[in-house]
């Protein structure tokens, strides 16, 4: 009986003493943190993807609280809605951005792009690109070793085992930009997100002269300027034998796709065209245009 009492008393004394000491130390070493950082962090998606350019969501929250204005702050995962909430919490105005999505600008599947050698070292794109131009004749194209898939926090980009090219899942992609940074060939671009995930883009970044580009890959952009002439909206530029479609100026009319001799311009998520029926194609384009303008 005595033992029990002594035990209880001594343990209670030790416990409360420790508690007091802990409390005093906690007070002494307390770090003041703006409570708004916690609020903002609560609003953020918590993926810690680094797409905002800050180390993790808390880093971004901290930066948002400290920043003079939110003009340069943007969380691609939370998007405009998220930023509006952040701005409300801080009593400021959020900068809005058009939503974007990652696009892989290479279509050189093995059918189109001849393999010229066999790569046998550590299987990452970064290491392969540090060694040489790649295992195909095109020194610009995708290496197919999937560094972009490894860095994606959102499971939104996967290697297609047939084409050996990465494919972006538009629904999952938050355009955090991790894959863009990971790709040593700089193939991936964040482009404006359109209605129904429609996309028109040049799926090639080969800057060689047309002849050698074509020799390396049958779907390479050869810089022939056919699309430049076809485009009514001045959205296409050609530099270093390579066409680029400005996603903001592009009205998704698909005329460039029709004229491209090497099929290097992709149209994605469009309704199928009626064969050889130019009239219809044009009306459809008009319809699309109206939709877009109304948008």
């Amino acid at each position: 009986m005595n033992t029990i009492v002594i035990t209880i008393i001594s343990l209670s004394v030790i416990g409360s003493l420790s508690g007091v000491i802990l409390f005093l130390i906690a007070q002494k070493f307390k770090v003041f943190e703006d409570p708004r950082i916690d609020d903002v962090e609560g609003i953020l998606p918590g993926a810690n993807c680094g797409g905002c350019g800050f180390p993790g969501c808390r880093g971004f929250a901290d930066a948002c609280v400290k920043a003079e204005s939110l003009d340069l702050m943007f969380c691609p995962v939370g998007g405009n809605d998220g930023m509006v909430k952040v701005a409300e919490a801080l009593g400021r105005v959020a900068a809005t951005k058009d939503p974007t999505v990652a696009v892989v600008r290479c279509a050189g599947s093995p059918d189109h792009r001849r393999r010229t050698n066999r790569y046998d070292s550590a299987m990452t794109c970064e290491i392969a690109s540090g060694l040489y131009s790649g295992d195909t004749a095109c020194s610009f194209g995708c290496l197919g070793l999937g560094d972009c898939t490894v860095v994606c926090t959102f499971d939104a980009i996967h290697m297609n085992p047939v084409t050996l090219l990465p494919e972006v899942d538009d629904a999952k992609c938050t355009s955090c930009g991790a894959c863009v940074k990971a790709c040593p060939k700089m193939i991936i671009e964040l482009r404006k997100k359109n209605k129904k995930d429609r996309k028109i883009y040049v799926s090639c970044i080969n800057m060689d002269k047309g002849a050698s580009a074509k020799k390396a890959c049958s779907v390479a952009c050869i810089g022939c300027k056919a699309c430049l002439k076809a485009c009514e909206y001045d959205a296409i530029t050609i530099e270093n034998f390579l066409a680029y479609i400005d996603p903001v100026k592009c009205k998704l009319c698909r005329k460039c796709v029709e004229v491209c001799p090497t099929d290097s311009i992709q149209e994605i998520n469009f309704p199928p065209r009626k064969k050889a029926d130019v009239e219809v194609a044009v009306t459809e384009t008009q319809a699309n245009k109206t939709i877009m303008e109304g948008f």
Binding site: L131, Y132, S133, G134, S139, D208, S212
Partner: peptide
């Protein structure tokens, strides 16, 4: 022209 690295 391509050198040993494969790049032109």
């Amino acid at each position: 022209a391509p050198d040993a690295s494969g790049y032109a």
